[in-house]
Computed example of a mutant assay.
Amino acid sequence: MDVKQIIDEAKLLIFDLDGTLYEDTDHFDYYCRLLQKRVPDEKKQAFWDTYENMKNGNHPVTIGKVYDIQNDASVTVDPMTLQVTKVMSFNGQEWPEEKVKDEFSGELVYDFDRLIAIGDGWWLPYATAMHFGLKQADTWECYNATKEYMVTDQFQLSKTPGLKQALERLREEKKLVLLTNSEKEDVKRLLKELNLDGLFHRLCTEGEKPLKTRDKMQAILDEFEIQPHEAVSIGDNFINEIAPALLMGLKAIYIQPNRIEVDHENLHVVPTLANAL
């Protein structure tokens, strides 16, 4: 069964926002530059170099990992079992197996205080900031400033070709839901900028993914009286919206331009949303 058939047969499509309905990444760099200004001058270059290494996959902390703020470490988690398989210090030293077992026994529980799922580009500047001693208040202020910048004339979102027309067509026969961690007003502004406002039957904002992904998805299924196998989760963040959906019995379309090693009968990988719709 190909991706388009999966979409055609579904009754409910649950979309992520950032990295899914738009795939720009320049705003992550903007966010990081704002944070960089808050570290001492002698650390600014190291701050940026660390972020660049993370972004390019040349650092223990990178997309797909979990950043442990308390231990300043990169945690590798099997997203389907939530078991920790490996831990490396920020400078690249691997933890002994016994230490991993002592620190992380059982399923890993994500939160937004200590164990941060690095599922997309928003979290790389955050992890860099935590390592260099900034406070969460710093990251929040810079994040909000970035969101404000994203709705100015200086920032232009790239619209996915044919997306609006595809959603208009799909909306006539399926339920379309947006499930995002972004705040409601930010979501409304971004959808207006993308010319996608009014196309979703439900906007589920401040979703607290991945901590509450399954709860939110279950509430959506219940609201529209849809069975898990009749729904598809579509997103670019495997930890946030793909693995939880597969564990619940939903089908999933993972937007990922690079090769991945995960294989699942209900998982379909596409390089861009345009390839799915």
Rank of each mutant, 00 (worst) to 15 (best):
M88W: 00
E241D: 15
W122L: 14
E94G: 05
F15E: 09
A219K: 12
G57Q: 10
V75G: 08
P210A: 09
I242T: 09
K55P: 15
L273V: 03
T76H: 14
R169V: 04
D49A: 10
L157E: 04
I239G: 04
N237W: 05
F112L: 15
G198D: 11
G57K: 02
E185M: 05
R38D: 03
D78I: 09
E9F: 00
L170D: 06
I234C: 03
N71P: 12
V39A: 06
T205F: 01
S89P: 14
K251V: 02
T272L: 03
I220H: 10
G198M: 00
M130Q: 12
G106E: 15
Y30Q: 15
V66K: 09
N53Y: 12
I6M: 09
T139C: 10
Y110L: 09
R171D: 00
K174S: 07
D2R: 07
R202L: 00
E208Q: 11
H27D: 15
D236C: 03
T81P: 12
A46V: 09
G57P: 13
E42Y: 02
E148W: 10
D16T: 14
L194I: 00
G121A: 01
I255G: 12
E230L: 06
Q156K: 15
V87F: 04
E261P: 13
E173R: 14
D186R: 07
I220A: 15
T205L: 02
P125G: 12
Y143R: 09
Q93V: 13
G235V: 04
S233P: 15
W48Q: 14
E193G: 11
N258W: 05
D2F: 07
S105H: 00
F155H: 13
D16C: 04
F132K: 13
E223G: 01
T160L: 03
D41H: 08
A231V: 03
W123C: 03
D18I: 03
F200C: 02
N181L: 01
V177S: 10
T25F: 14
P60F: 03
D236N: 11
F112D: 14
D236I: 01
I239V: 05
V77M: 11
Q136D: 06
S74F: 09
L277A: 01
I14V: 02
Q36N: 06
L246W: 09
N58H: 13
K43Q: 13
L247M: 06
T76E: 14
G119W: 08
Y110C: 10
T128K: 12
M80G: 04
D120A: 07
E23F: 07
E185A: 05
I6T: 12
P79M: 01
P125F: 09
K251M: 08
R189P: 14
W123H: 09
R189Q: 04
E173Y: 02
C32P: 10
I6Y: 00
F200T: 05
F47I: 02
K184S: 07
A274K: 06
Q83S: 11
E141T: 10
E42S: 11
L273T: 07
D120C: 12
M80W: 02
H264N: 10
T76L: 03
P96A: 02
M248G: 13
F224W: 10
K55W: 13
S89F: 08
I220Q: 10
L191F: 04
E223F: 02
L191D: 08
V270M: 06
